[in-house]
């Protein structure tokens, strides 16, 4: 598995999960974990995604997800899981 973290933050609206998930599905990136909250109309979602079988690399996936984020009016970030392993585990 090659895991990446996708974070989405912005004003809540219909279609955010669907929009982001459809980009991932189009590239055969598998969502392995997802958590989502809406606090005072601010939508926040964190996905852990396996891109080992995806047809694009993390850079290309980031570009497309950021583009989708712009369309949806939300901020999207894509980070390699190693960042979290290094910073949150000894």
């Amino acid at each position: 598995m090659e895991l990446v973290v996708v974070s989405v933050l912005g004003a809540d609206r219909v279609g955010i999960v669907a929009g982001i998930a459809s980009v991932l599905a189009r590239h055969n990136a598998n969502i392995v974990d997802i958590s989502q909250t809406v606090v005072r109309d601010i939508f926040s979602m964190i996905m852990v995604v396996d891109i080992s079988k995806a047809d694009v690399d993390i850079s290309q996936l980031r570009r497309e997800l950021e583009e989708e984020g712009k369309r949806l009016g939300v901020m999207v970030g894509v980070f390699h899981i190693d960042v979290f392993k290094y910073m949150q585990r000894i």
Binding site: S7, S44, I46, V83, M87
Partner: peptide, 8 residues
């Protein structure tokens, strides 16, 4: 999610 959120 809080750990991921902290790094983000």
């Amino acid at each position: 999610p809080r750990e991921i959120g902290e790094v983000l």
